[in-house]
Nucleic acid binder design. Structure first.
Lengths: 195, 195
DNA sequence: CCGTTATTTACCGTAACGCGAAAAAGTCAG
DNA sequence: CTGACTTTTTCGCGTTACGGTAAATAACGG
């Protein structure tokens, strides 16, 4: 159960409703941990059953009542305890890499499109992180409490830049294959095989 | 179902038994996709049910008979079809990042230990990839069929180097926090004890 | 006889993911 | 007023994945 702990981590900032948590998992912490609202609500009720969070109903007029979840002392302790265990590096599990692994058995055109979409995605992310950095850490430094968030941003920046650069390299390499394939007489016709 | 496709991707190289696949998932493709032997055998029988792979029993003396799985034309087509679909970038889902997110609510000592273990891990990986590179691609170039594998190695090298550097930075930052905490009279002192 | 390597399979549990849907009460555009 | 969208929570079904424990078979090495 790591999603539960990610939720606890979010709730260390401030009490939140499931709805707000879902939005947080779409933005800050969601940059490295995806979860939709269903997962979050389900996990929240499990956490409540365990006594790690406590829900207070807040009556609202004009909107449905909301359940504001607060970290309990038990939840806080559970988070600390979980965080003290050694972690194991997660594997990437990226479809794209599997496709590259079997490059000679798949079509390169859609793969190149995919890589170009990735490139854009990682560039966007990079720009977003840069904006976040100058906004939240204009001096480039952080208090002790915010050091973790700064480190996460640095990690994100490194990662996005590195992957974006790699995407460019990969696109070039695939383009080279395509042009090679168009030039070399490989197919059944000896020449003049216009595809 | 992406594990299934990863298996199909492995089988494009050559027919293999579940046992060999498990070893492959411990080495080359396993660098970015973990799967133990149980998952693989289960997935293999599912793939066989779908007609994507075909198992031939090879009688052995001295060892249990083995089932050599071969990609069927349907399996090959399924792989191509799957590889032509656009992929979505996978999220990292790393416990360590969650812990950094909640840095002010967890103990830093075990986190630092964790980071140091990571640093070592990523350095090992980097060295391993370098060895693989010079062994499999001494010229630094690859044929069209091997371009994907070369790209994967480059990706791995970039990634490991980048993460290792980041680990160093993170360790330094955490050490700075520790020393700050040891110097400033926060604990038993009366001021600024926001708990 | 025990442990190891090679090889496959079984059962059980649960975490995670995803789809599709719905309720209930407001706001805002057409 | 209708229809669409926001806010907020919940339910139910199914699949994929992951994890542990373990067993059966058969050789070889000590």
């Amino acid at each position: 159960m790591a999603l539960g702990d990610a939720i606890l981590a979010c709730l260390t900032e401030r009490p939140m409703t499931g709805y707000e948590l879902a939005k947080t998992f779409d933005a800050s912490i969601g940059f490295f941990w995806k979860a939709d609202h269903q997962q979050i609500y389900r996990e929240l009720s499990r956490l409540r059953d365990r006594g790690h969070v406590q829900g207070r109903e807040v009556v609202q007029s004009g909107k449905p009542n909301k359940l504001v979840y607060t970290l309990t002392p038990e939840g806080r302790a559970a988070l600390r305890h979980w965080a003290a265990r050694p972690s194991s590096p997660a594997s990437m599990k990226d479809d794209l890499l599997v496709r590259l692994y079997a490059l000679d058995s798949v079509d390169i055109e859609p793969l190149r499109d995919d890589l170009m979409a990735r490139l854009e995605h990682h560039r966007d992310r990079f720009a977003r992180y840069e904006r976040l950095l100058t906004k939240r850490f204009p001096q480039g430094t952080a208090s002790a409490a915010d050091t973790g968030k700064l480190l996460l941003l640095h990690m994100g920046l490194r990662h996005e830049r590195s992957v974006a650069e790699w995407c460019e390299e990969a696109i070039d390499a695939l383009s080279a294959i395509s042009s090679r394939a168009n030039v070399l007489p490989l197919a059944d016709g000896q020449h003049d095989s216009n595809g």
